[in-house]
Write a protein that binds this DNA or RNA. Structure first.
Lengths: 206, 206
DNA sequence: AGTGCCATCTTAGCGTTGTTCAGATAGTGA
DNA sequence: TCACTATCTGAACAACGCTAAGATGGCACT
C-alpha cells in the first residue's frame, strides 16, 4: 500500500503529502464516487491533519483538479492503447469502445473530469489535458475524411461518443434495453451497437 | 411572484408548502446552479423553518427529484413544440436543436436531471418521465428507418444529441471553435453543425 | 557547528450544511 | 365540543470547507 519512493513520513513532515493526498482523493472517488469525496477524509487517509491540504492545494477544488488531470492522463493512455489499422472507420469504432469502457471502468474519475464546479478550469494544464485527450479522435477523423470541416467533425464524433458514455454510465441504457446493467451493456450490446447503428464506424478503408 | 391559487399562508400552516418549496428549489437552481442549492435556503425562501421540508420530501433528494421531474416535463414540452414535416431527417435535426437549446436555456434543470446522486431514480415517476421525453426521438426514428433495430437507433441518436448538449453546456466547444461562448455556439455554429456534420439529419424524405 | 529562515503541518474556531426529533399549532371529522 | 392528525417549529448533532495563529523541523548560509 505504501509507495516505496516516498521519503517516508518523518513525524511532523510528511515528505510526500501532495502525491499522497492526490492518491487518497482518487481512492475515495473510486470507492464512493465524486459526491463521497471530502477534503477531510483525504487528509485522514494521508495521516495528516485537516488543515494540511490547504497548504498544497488551496482548496478542495485544487486537489480535485489534480485528480481530474490524472483522469485525463489515464483516458489518453486508454485511447493511445487502441490499435490502429488502415481502416479509419474501424479505428474510430475501437476508439469509441475504449472511451466508453474507460468511463465505465473509472466512473469517479470520468464524472469528475466533466464537473466544472469541482475542477479549476482556469488551470492551463486542464485545457492542455483536455485537448490532448482529443488528439486521437482528431487524427483518426482526419484520415477518415480529410476534406470535411475538421473541428465540426471532431466535435460531432466526440459528442456522440461522450453521449454514449454518459448515458451508459448513468444507467440510461436499461430503459431501452430492458433492465440491462452497465457492465453487460459494455460487454455485449455496445460493440454490436457501434458496429451497426453508430454512423462513424463505417467500413471506409483508406 | 405569488401564485394566485395558493391558499395563502395562514400563519402557522403554509397551505401550499410543497409547491412553494419546489418552486423555490427550481429558482435557486436557475440562479446559482445545482451546486448552489441547499435545502435550508429553499426553506428560507418559502418562509418556513429549516425542518419543514423534511415532512413533505423526506430529504433533499426528495425535493430535487420533484424539480428533476419538472425538468423532464419542460424538456418534453420543448421537444413536442418542434414542428414535424414529411422529412424525418430534418425533424431529427430540429429535435436535436431543441434538445441542445433546452440544455443551454435551463442548465440547472438539465444538469440535475442527469445527476443520479441528487435524484431518487427509484421513484417510478422518474423512469416514466425519462422514457416519456424519449418518445419524440423514438417516433421520428421509426419514420426515418423503420427496418433498423429500434432501441439501438434510439440510443445512438439520443446519445449523440445528449453528448452535444453536455459538451456545449460544459463549454467544451470553445476548445474546438476557439473561444466561442455557449450562446454563440447555439445560435451560429450548432444549426450549421447539425445540418452538415451530424449524420442523423440527412435529407431522406419519406 | 551554529543559527536563522521558511516551507510544512497542527490546532482551534467559524459558518454552513442535511438530518432527526420532541413539541407546538391548527385544520378536520366525529 | 373534542379528539385526531397533518403540518410546522426550534434545537440539537455530526460533518463539511475554509481561515488564521502557532508549532515544528529541514536547509542554506555564516
Amino acid at each position: 500500500m505504501e509507495n516505496p519512493d516516498t521519503p517516508a513520513k518523518s513525524g511532523y513532515h510528511h515528505g510526500n503529502l501532495k502525491e499522497a493526498l492526490i492518491e487518497a482523493a482518487d481512492a475515495i472517488i473510486r470507492e464512493k464516487g465524486v459526491e463521497g469525496f471530502s477534503l477531510r477524509e483525504a487528509a485522514r487517509r494521508a495521516g495528516v491533519s485537516i488543515g494540511a491540504p490547504a497548504h498544497h492545494f488551496g482548496s478542495a477544488t485544487g486537489l480535485l483538479t489534480e485528480v481530474a488531470l490524472l483522469g485525463y492522463g489515464s483516458l489518453g493512455a486508454a485511447l493511445n492503447a487502441v490499435t490502429t489499422s488502415d481502416n479509419a472507420g474501424a479505428d474510430l469504432q475501437r476508439l469509441a469502445l475504449a472511451y466508453v469502457r474507460f468511463a465505465l471502468a473509472y466512473p469517479g474519475r470520468f464524472r469528475l473530469m466533466f464537473r466544472p464546479d469541482l475542477v479549476n478550469r482556469d488551470d492551463p494544464r486542464y485545457a492542455q489535458a483536455s485537448t490532448q485527450a482529443l488528439s486521437d479522435f482528431a487524427k483518426t477523423i482526419a484520415r477518415r475524411d480529410p476534406t470535411a470541416d475538421r473541428m465540426a467533425q471532431i466535435f460531432i464524433v466526440w459528442s456522440s461518443i461522450h453521449g454514449i458514455a454518459s448515458l451508459a454510465l448513468d444507467g440510461k441504457a436499461k430503459y431501452l434495453f430492458d433492465g440491462i446493467t452497465p457492465d453487460d451493456f459494455a460487454a455485449d450490446i455496445l460493440p454490436n451497437l457501434l458496429a451497426t447503428a453508430w454512423p462513424f464506424g463505417g467500413n471506409d478503408a483508406a
